[in-house]
Design a binder for these strands. Structure first.
Length: 466
RNA sequence: GGCGGCGUGGCCGAGUGGUUCAGGCAGGGGCCUGCAAAGCCCUUUACGGCGGUUCGAUUCCGCCCGCCGCCUCCA
């Protein structure tokens, strides 16, 4: 069974499931006010890999990830563009899913939208008011963090040691600067909903606690997101659950930053971010997945033209393997159990590698180690084939292919479907080489390369792909 | 100020108290090839500094230097 680092304890511990065989996980999704950037891509990939790996090992995963579609920044953008908030949210959500598809991220099993949960949030805010931990002001409803046992757990700091950052806005009438908004009183021209404590809209920290508990139930298994969400966002969600007397996430998982070539965190406020769209225009989405997998999920990753190109080269090595051994399709969906059966029956080679791979993944998702296992298989497959054991090579390669599939890394042989003109050129090159007319053969190769084909000569003649 | 992380060979990036090696990429040499491509083989004291513990530390402890993050919207 998998062990994962838990932010609440600061330790790697075994994942103890609420319901054996079934995993419930909630990952904070995007606020749809702008184009998704590399950081969004990273958390999506990290949790997609976690989800896929759990599924691959035979667990049933319920993966909920929300869309925040009501928020200050959406309102601000709508205002700037003289559009409605719902239009902004709809458009930005569309580019979110387009980017997710390009990255090969599986759709979560449920995607709750904040605006569809306002009723439930109103109920919860009412309960928090009834409990006495929340209070009303002229600007909304706030939760008093002093009323929360163990506030600061996820920051791993005591309440008293948390420095107060921003000054308290006198207009907010908060009792403590760290109190946070559960409900924001309606302002002219902003989206708002009716509530017993006044018309308004929900605060960000309320939607996730409501939706996660509503869909996954008390004591669900994993709550995840980027490291910067640990505090205060996740802490504030937890605070509400504590006040409500409901058991919340059993395990907190947070991923590290994307940093630029100077080692600085990529963020909107610093302006040093790259949109996913920019990256995907320049590079294969699979290369970004590989780049993310090459570092441990809690470490920062450097994304720069250099590291992306490096990942693309490594990906090319995997694709070349698929080409050499004719791997495709269905294999990549083989589960761990099936793979082990096939390894036992000899259909897949290198059974030891399966165990090795799982040991590494089970150790807090050591994806760099898992990739090393895969690349060792690639080499072993090539060595076997080079020494004449084509079949053994193919079995080893198939094992590597299955493991890539478990990480959502779609290894592809590339397209080698030829149009008639290309096929004719290939035939001509073969003929020219046969009669040792290398001048003509080279001319044909140049023509093919100019048309975007990669030319490889093998024992069975010229092969091209792109 | 509080809390936390990091510093590994040209680059990215794992890992470990001690004999042999993470892995990828790039460069160099070789094999194969008509030439390429792909593939394979080889590639020179790698572990921030100073102390300490130890038979032995890159790995443990202390100090120092440097970098980064959270404490405020942020994946």
């Amino acid at each position: 069974m998998l062990s994962l680092h838990d932010t609440a304890t600061g330790e790697v511990r075994r994942l103890e499931l609420r319901d054996p065989g079934r995993v419930s996980m909630y990952v904070c999704g995007p606020t749809v006010y702008d184009a998704p950037h590399l950081g969004h891509g990273r958390f999506s990939l990290v949790f997609d890999v976690l989800r896929r790996y759990l599924e691959w090992t035979g667990l049933e995963v319920r993966y909920v990830s929300n869309i925040t579609d009501v928020d200050d920044k959406i309102i601000a953008r709508a205002r700037d563009e003289a559009r409605s908030e719902s239009e902004v949210a709809r458009d930005q959500e569309a580019s979110w899913w387009a980017a997710m598809e390009a990255l090969g991220v599986k759709r979560p099993t449920e995607v709750p939208h904040a605006t569809a949960y306002v009723r439930r949030m109103v109920d919860v805010v009412g309960e928090l008011l009834d409990s006495g931990a929340a209070y009303r002001t002229s600007t909304g409803v706030y939760l008093s963090v002093d009323a929360v046992d163990g506030y600061g757990l996820l920051a791993r700091q005591s309440l008293g040691s948390l420095r107060v950052g921003a000054r308290v806005d006198p207009g907010e009438e908060k009792r403590s600067p760290r109190d946070f908004a559960l409900w924001k009183a309606a302002k002219e021209g902003e989206p708002s909903w009716e509530a017993p404590f006044g018309r308004g809209r929900p605060g960000w920290h309320t939607e996730c606690v409501v939706m996660s508990l509503d869909l996954l139930g008390d004591g669900f298994d994993i709550h995840g997101g980027g490291e910067d969400l640990a505090f205060p966002h996740h802490e504030n969600e937890r605070a509400q659950a504590v006040v409500l007397g409901r058991s919340f996430a059993r395990h907190w998982v947070h991923n590290g930053w994307v940093v630029d070539a100077t080692g600085e965190k990529m963020s909107k406020s610093l302006g040093n971010f790259t949109s996913l769209e920019d990256l995907l225009r320049r590079a294969d989405g699979r290369a970004y997945r590989l780049l993310v997998l090459r570092a441990h999920y809690r470490s920062p990753i450097e994304v720069s033209p250099l590291t992306v190109a490096d990942a693309e080269e490594a990906l090319g090595r995997l694709d070349a393997m698929a080409r050499r051994f004719g791997l495709a399709g269905g294999l990549s969906e083989m589960s761990a159990d099936e793979a082990e059966e096939k390894a036992a029956s000899g259909e897949l080679a290198e059974a030891g590698a399966l165990g090795d791979f799982r040991r590494k993944m089970d150790d807090d998702l050591d994806t760099p180690g898992a990739l090393a296992t895969i690349f060792e298989l690639v080499k072993a497959a090539n060595v076997a084939a080079d020494s004449g054991s084509q079949q053994l090579g193919a079995q080893i390669a198939a094992t590597a292919f299955v493991l890539c599939g478990s990480l959502g890394l779609a290894v592809e042989p590339g397209s080698s479907e030829l149009d008639a003109a290309t096929a004719a050129l290939v035939a001509e090159r073969d003929a020219a080489r046969k009669r040792r007319d290398f001048v003509r053969a080279d001319e044909v190769r140049d023509q093919l390369s100019a048309a975007g084909w990669v030319v490889e000569d093998g024992p069975s003649g010229t092969r091209v792909h792109r």
